[in-house]
Design a protein around this nucleic acid. Structure first.
Lengths: 337, 337
DNA sequence: TTGATTGATCGAACCGTTTCGACTACGAAT
DNA sequence: ATTCGTAGTCGAAACGGTTCGATCAATCAA
């Protein structure tokens, strides 16, 4: 691999001059510039990013820490982030923490050792210890989707409470009264808010929320499937379901199908977050879609600002909350009583 | 950020001794080891990976170059690769080339500047120039899914011809004779093989393949949708469809639905490659599933071997072809004539 | 007693850049 | 004529590690 020394020797100038010439920093005569460029071309010089980064103090890599890459929400996020950051010559290191809390800290430590320029993270844990850990990290970090109380970092998300409120109100307007909610672990930021949004909507219409109708699963599909099977076997089963994620909605739909119920005739189903190719699903799900592109864009830009502005780490944290969009499908119908 | 110097000073030993102690390379007395470890802990020392990599000549990062992160095939691949490589302390840089041929070269160049330890790639292009480019790269590279003729690199894929042959034979056994094939650009390795597998199966049963029944789209869903709409509007429309990818199958299904046909009663549908949550799709697709986990695992291990063995770059290239699995769904039925 | 071996430690060179301060020439200002 | 500013170039010092060879004391064989 040709180094800057080879170029310097070939061009008959000092190493520093090559650096000045190639980066356009510092004055270089047209003559030397030409010679350097030719020499560089001749020896096939490619700057060693490692050396550049070492000198600079940090690399032009950014870490993207996600819980579940299989979730289309996150893979779409990755795509947009990757595309935006490539414009500023950054590359993205992706790590899946598989919802393991301890892996999150280890991952962040590892990224720090790598001296990444910044971190984009959808945290899974939300406890004070982790918040302290994040604060001590002392590098540009932007949180997406899930916040960490007390971390005091940039945060980008959609209005999670509004999402379930929209769905619940939609079902109520349609005539449903026995509505069940299948949510995630309420210790998670978004899970708690989505449950709250459901409760608020029910309360606003003076509808009771029986404990049996408010179920804790996780954002994956499997657990939701089991819970919905249980739910639909109750003597007093709900007429409509609000699920807290896309994968849960799919799990619920499968449970409905497998038990021989029909959706939407017997059970109405709604969910948060888009499902790819939802249009080939039958029925098409009625969902509160998060504007993933917007979230990714804003988050990436927050991060870029923090990385480029000197002292950007200590800028006051900003928050961006996007508004979800109700997408009406064919998975809801008035209750048939 | 504490450096090795800080540790050395705190422990009262030489820099080199700290290095020896921390890495377990070279003999260190129990006494010094203890002092170094304590000092390291006290100052909060985290080795600078950039410096280590610079010295070593390459980083412990590997590049994963994919055409389309949104495709579940690739996101599953990413997940497995990420998990396997993290065991050897590697991290993964993900780049989406969005099927842009020129972006592939640029991306590879960029990864080379970053001195990544190796590259895992699902190439989109397959031409002699690109093969030459890959050969000149002179670093550990493993190709997944799509091969590049003449590149002479490790290659991991499933038997693409067998996949469509299985599907076509299945349809033929069911009684279908007018079977259409919707494939990708045959300049792509897998697309060509999948078409070949279809042709072979048809020929083996002495069934004719009319040009109108063999359609070129791309692996995305949109184009397949358009083409299927056209196909089903023909006076002599096919009774069964073999699509060459998961996204295409979904696009085809949507087209069938939108035109008011019923699947499988009027049109049978099959596809290559799994669709996540295919079990909630109605009908459930009959597909030839690629063993993604196996592909990812083998590819990652090929790469690890090449990276760890010294001179691994010049090892003779290996090939691993996995066998796809026919997964029967409810999207096929005998033709109703 | 001497020479060889070994364990523990150290200093210095090196990886490939960037960048700071110094130096030279040369035209402009005084 | 002398000073000043500046364009152009250079050498050397970083950045933060690893590693090679040297040093030195202690152990051991002859």
């Amino acid at each position: 691999m040709a180094t800057i020394r080879d170029v310097a020797k070939k061009a008959g100038v000092a190493i520093s001059t090559v650096s000045l010439a190639m980066n356009g920093t510092g004055p270089v005569s047209a003559e030397t510039l030409k010679r350097v460029l030719e020499a560089s071309e001749a020896v096939g010089y490619k700057p060693n990013v490692l050396a550049q980064s070492l000198k600079r103090g940090h690399s032009k890599l950014i870490g993207l820490v996600l819980g579940d890459i299989g979730n289309p929400f996150f893979s779409r996020l990755l795509r947009v982030v990757d595309s935006i950051l490539s414009d500023t010559d950054h590359m993205v290191i992706v790590v899946e923490t598989a919802s393991h809390a301890e892996r999150e800290r280890a991952t962040l430590d590892q990224l720090r050792r790598h001296r990444v320029g910044g971190i984009l993270m959808a945290p899974m844990t939300n406890d004070p210890n982790f918040a302290a850990f994040l604060r001590k990290l002392d590098m540009p970090v932007v949180l997406i989707d899930q916040n960490v109380d007390g971390a005091n970092l940039d945060f980008v998300s959609s209005d999670n409470a509004l999402a379930t409120t929209m769905l619940t109100e939609y079902l109520i307007r349609m005539g449903h009264r026995r509505i069940a909610f299948i949510g995630g672990d309420p210790r998670q930021w978004t899970a708690a808010l989505r449950r709250q949004g459901f409760r608020d909507a029910m309360a606003a219409s003076s509808l009771p929320v029986e404990p049996a109708m408010e179920i804790v699963a996780d954002f994956s599909g499997e657990k939701a499937y089991d819970q919905v099977v249980r739910l639909l076997s109750l003597p007093q089963r709900p007429t409509a379901l609000v699920t807290a994620s896309n994968l849960m909605a799919l799990g619920a739909l499968q449970a409905i199908n497998d038990l021989g119920f029909s959706c939407p005739q017997e059970i109405s189903l709604t969910g948060v977050d888009d499902v790819p190719w939802s249009n080939v699903l039958k029925p098409r799900l009625t969902i509160a879609a998060q504007p993933v592109e917007e979230l990714a864009r804003v988050a990436a830009n927050f991060l870029i600002e923090r990385m480029t502005h000197r002292g950007g780490v200590s800028l006051p944290p900003r928050t961006h909350i996007a508004i979800p969009k109700l997408v009406i499908g064919t998975s809801c119908a008035p209750p048939n009583t």
